Computed example of a mutant assay.
Amino acid sequence: MAKDVEAAAGHGEYAVKDYTDPPPAPLIDWEELTKWSLYRAAIAEFIATMLFLYVTVATVIGYKHQSDPDVNPTDAACSGVGILGIAWAFGGMIFILVYCTAGISGGHINPAVTFGLFLARKVSLIRALLYMIAQCLGAICGVGLVKGFQKAFFVRYGGGANELSDGYSKGTGLAAEIIGTFVLVYTVFSATDPKRSARDSHVPVLAPLPIGFAVFMVHLATIPITGTGINPARSFGAAVIYNKDKAWDDQWIFWVGPLIGAAIAAAYHQYILRAGAVKALGSFRSNA
């Protein structure tokens, strides 16, 4: 049991609040494979990622069609939802889906988030792998639905696939994905921190909101560079259904960048903000 000391409001005194960090998840928990809760959570991740890709990719393709000069020659630049609307679609859907699935699967909807939580020992390796598979399959199905409903526009407008934009180097694209995913995963850790939950009882209820806003803000910054991945399943699902060389050539950026960004965010939160390294060193010294 850890204790948090903070000043009492309006007084010069200090109050002690108790909070409990959940025990680290086992690296490999074979018993999980016998539990329905694991498969229920994986199904929730599959459905959530499918819905996420369906709505967001449909928004991207719809915007490109509405702003196509050949379709709307008089007012193409001002037609459709615009970059701001696309960012809202991604951030808003994450807010909705995290809210809906947080109590079932944790509301990851992103292999990079799952990877970061695995590194922090919040989920086991078995659960992490099953989540990632479910997320990628859900993404493929979600984009497949878009292609089925908008077949005439899907290939013409890029299939919602992430590609490095002209004028940017691969290093710039990789850095954008690392930083963007760091912002997202850092927000996930902060919004779900049990220490904050003990300090502010409303934090668990509001957790999906800052996570959705993080996705929204990152999209505003990186759509011009990479179209914004920060979610390997999102990039992979679109690449599979679109299946063009450029999307596959750049695919590594949308896996390596997010996984590095998630790892940095996990280390920063666990070992710097939560002082994991200092606590471990103190425990070692006390046992010496």
Rank of each mutant, 00 (worst) to 15 (best):
I86Y: 02
G91M: 06
N110I: 11
F95N: 05
I104C: 11
D18L: 10
F52G: 08
I47F: 12
I83F: 15
I61E: 08
I61F: 10
T114P: 04
L51T: 01
T20Y: 00
E31Y: 04
G80K: 12
T74C: 00
L53Q: 09
Y54N: 09
K35Q: 12
E13A: 12
D18Y: 15
G116I: 04
G103S: 07
D21R: 11
T20G: 03
Y39I: 04
R40D: 03
H11D: 10
V71G: 00
K35D: 13
H11F: 09
Y63V: 00
K17Q: 13
I28P: 00
E45N: 02
A9L: 06
A120R: 15
T49I: 04
S124I: 00
G10A: 07
A58H: 06
Y54C: 06
S67A: 15
G91F: 04
D68W: 02
H65G: 14
D21C: 02
M50I: 01
L117Q: 07
W30C: 02
I94K: 00
K122T: 03
A9P: 00
G62T: 14
A25P: 08
A41W: 07
F118H: 05
V113Y: 03
I28K: 01
A48Y: 07
A9V: 14
V81E: 05
H65I: 08
F90N: 09
F95T: 15
D70L: 13
D70T: 11
R40N: 05
P22E: 14
G103M: 03
A87Y: 09
Q66F: 13
S37R: 07
G82W: 02
A77F: 07
K64A: 15
S105M: 13
V123E: 01
G12Y: 00
N72S: 13
P26V: 01
G85T: 15
S37D: 13
V81F: 12
T49L: 05
I61D: 04
V98Y: 07
L27I: 14
L27C: 10
Y14T: 01
A102S: 12
I43R: 07
